[in-house]
Design a protein around this nucleic acid. Structure first.
Length: 197
DNA sequence: AAGTATACCAACCGCGAGCGC
DNA sequence: GGCGCTCGCGGTTGGTATACT
């Protein structure tokens, strides 16, 4: 059995907040070797951290062009729209917000927006349209369907009942499977999302 | 001023997918 | 095809800062 598949060694690895020195070492190694092979990056940097910890630190803090704090009204609006459309797919949402990280958006949603949304609307299946324990499966099904659609090989959506909220804005539950082509297009770029009122 | 509650954010954890051998 | 490793994702936790009593 492989030791800790992708997990940090809790006994040996450093844990907790990163120091400036660790940040510097990590940045140096990434500058030379690039942001990949995180485990070897951790070793090369002489950091007593696991690879995924290094990756997280880089992605959320050290990466160039990261914006910190001050999420604008426009960004907030976009997050709300995207969340309505995609659910808790923070990495996809972050991909639409240059300089923002999935972790930051997730935190912002959990601490600000979820409450705001709750105040403003009836509890619909906005973020919980994925049943607990089946999140990955359904989400990835959607990905693969979108991919097949792109490839022109989409076959069936028997078990796909995507619903994105109670206002009928994005409700695919009775849609023709071919409409998933729209979804795949969105995953490329949906410019209408950027039309702020 | 001290104690408590709440908000926020960084980091960790567990899981599944993809890839190479 | 099976196995092990790496990566990426989303959920959760824990520490710190701030607000409140």
């Amino acid at each position: 059995m492989a030791p800790m598949r992708g997990r940090c060694n809790k006994k040996e690895a450093n844990r907790g907040a990163w120091t400036a020195e660790e940040d510097q070492k990590l940045a140096q190694v990434i500058e030379i070797h690039g942001p990949k092979r995180w485990r070897s990056v951790a070793v090369k940097a002489g950091l007593n951290r696991c690879g995924k910890s290094c990756r997280l630190r880089w992605m959320n803090h050290l990466r160039p062009n990261i914006k910190r704090g001050n999420i604008s009204d426009q960004e907030e609006d976009l997050i709300v729209r995207l969340h309505k459309l995609l659910g808790n797919r923070w990495s996809l949402i972050a991909g639409r917000l240059p300089g923002r990280t999935d972790n930051e958006i997730k935190n912002y949603w959990n601490s600000h927006l979820s409450k705001k949304i709750k105040q403003n609307e009836e509890p619909v299946r906005s973020s919980r349209w994925q049943e607990p324990g089946t999140v990955k499966t359904k989400v990835q099904d959607m990905d693969s369907v979108a991919k097949r659609s792109e490839e022109g090989t989409s076959k069936t959506l028997e078990d796909s009942k995507y619903s994105f909220g109670g206002d009928g804005f994005f409700d695919f539950s009775n849609e023709d499977p071919m409409n998933l082509e729209w979804m795949s297009k969105f995953l490329e770029l949906d410019e209408t999302l950027y039309d702020f009122p």
